[in-house]
Amino acid sequence: MEINASKRGPRLHVKLVGELDHHSAEQTRNMLDTLLKDITVRDLTIDLSGVSFMDSAGLGVILGRYRILSMRGGHLTVTGMSGAIDKIFRMSGVYAIVDRV
């Protein structure tokens, strides 16, 4: 998984490029959590337009980052979902807690 991140004030924008499955989940989680060690980050946007595949392991990564941000009063936004990723998000009710653009 490749991660491209940019930060402006409390806003962190992260673009993921690759396949987000169980195989890549741990590496992706560790890279995101390293970025989230910066406690000034309040709003995280994860751009999934470069993610060619995601299953429920990826969903776990997204929900885990949501928990971290919500504990510090922040927000998580997802963007760039393919039809397949959108289907997983919809069936799991993610959009009830995570914003989408």
């Binding site: 989680r29 429920s56 776990g60 069936m91 799991s92």
Partner: peptide, 23 residues
Amino acid sequence: RPFYTSKPELERSGMGFAVMEAF
């Protein structure tokens, strides 16, 4: 059952079988 996981410590979503069923 959706959201059930026997390994919550692994940050699993518990949606594996639900996804298989839906897809």
